[in-house]
Amino acid sequence: MYNKFLAEKIIKNALIEDMNYGDTTTDILIDEHSISEAFMIAKEEGVIAGLPIAEIVFRLLDNKIAFQFIKEDGEHVKKGEQIAIIKGSTKNILKGERLALNIIQRMSGIASKASAYADRINGYNTKIVDTRKTTPGLRMLEKYAVRVGGCFNHRFNLSDAVMIKDNHIKAVGSIEKAVDRVRKNIAHTTKIEVEVTNLKELEEAINANADIIMLDNMDIETMKKAVAITNRRAILEASGNVTIERIKGMAEIGVDVISVGELTHSVKAMDISLMII
């Protein structure tokens, strides 16, 4: 579900950022041989994500620390429930506390938001996907959290697929020219997606044999017409101004995919604490 080598690299960089010359307070106050036990506790209801990543924090600091999962990623927890136990060096538990919490709080916030969106269209044949509107450097972890919450991933980066957007079309001259130029220069395994803003552009994208067509900022009635016009000749993705209130109406008209930037770009972190006992 995630690349463990990349996850370790992310955590190492974050640890360097947080204590490039050590932890002044902990190194002075805490005895080298002190051993403690601590609990991670959910301070509000939500869906947990990032426990294996939090474990990496403590393992990189001290491979003798024991990290015990009480809950698993994807589980719904209530306020006050324990989600993990950490046992080992007091110094290293304290050094990893903030980073581990920052990661699991953000990832759980994303998973909780994704879960709410997924529940909203339960029973429909429409997938909710994320976007590239992620925190720089944390995309892999945030997209993993989206999947934990029950939604799906769009492309991970600019290399994954072709997405011809409005500025590409303006620069080249037309949808047909853009698709033709791209198709001559990509592998047969690469999909081509085209962003359109009206039904005329939709027809152009269909005639150019685009694999996926993004309906950008269209109202429900226009999207309904777009579904009828396309008639399964391309995958239709609804995007722009997507809210949890509008999502069911979009799914009802039969679009295949709905991309939601809110899953990652402005999510509220879930409140989780770590307490030494």
Rank of each mutant, 00 (worst) to 15 (best):
V57H: 15
V57K: 13
V57N: 12
F58R: 04
F58Q: 07
R59F: 11
R59D: 10
R59P: 02
R59C: 00
L60T: 04
L60R: 05
L60E: 12
L61V: 02
L61Q: 04
L61G: 06
D62A: 00
D62I: 00
D62S: 01
D62Q: 04
N63I: 07
N63A: 12
N63T: 11
K64R: 01
I65A: 09
A66N: 15
A66V: 15
F67R: 06
F67W: 10
Q68K: 13
Q68W: 03
Q68D: 14
Q68R: 10
Q68S: 10
F69M: 14
F69T: 06
I70C: 01
I70T: 10
E72P: 00
E72C: 00
E72I: 00
E72N: 11
G74D: 15
G74I: 08
G74S: 15
G74A: 15
E75G: 00
H76Y: 08
H76S: 06
H76K: 13
H76P: 00
V77Y: 15
V77T: 15
K78M: 07
K78W: 04
K79L: 10
K79C: 09
G80Q: 09
E81N: 09
E81S: 07
E81K: 00
Q82W: 02
Q82D: 08
I83F: 09
I83S: 07
I83V: 11
A84N: 14
I85T: 12
I85W: 02
I86E: 14
K87I: 07
K87R: 15
G88W: 13
G88D: 14
G88V: 10
G88P: 08
S89V: 03
S89F: 07
S89T: 10
T90E: 14
T90Q: 12
K91I: 14
K91T: 14
K91G: 15
N92E: 09
N92K: 11
N92T: 04
I93N: 04
L94P: 11
K95D: 11
K95Y: 11
K95P: 05
G96F: 11
E97G: 01
R98M: 02
R98V: 03
L99W: 13
A100C: 05
A100I: 00
L101D: 11
L101K: 05
L101A: 09
L101C: 11
N102K: 09
N102C: 07
N102R: 06
N102Y: 12
N102H: 06
I103V: 12
I103L: 14
I103R: 03
I104F: 03
I104N: 01
Q105K: 08
Q105N: 07
R106V: 00
R106M: 01
R106E: 03
R106W: 00
R106T: 02
M107K: 06
M107T: 09
M107H: 10
S108Q: 09
G109Q: 07
G109L: 05
G109N: 03
A111D: 08
A111M: 08
S112N: 14
S112A: 13
K113E: 10
K113F: 02
A114H: 08
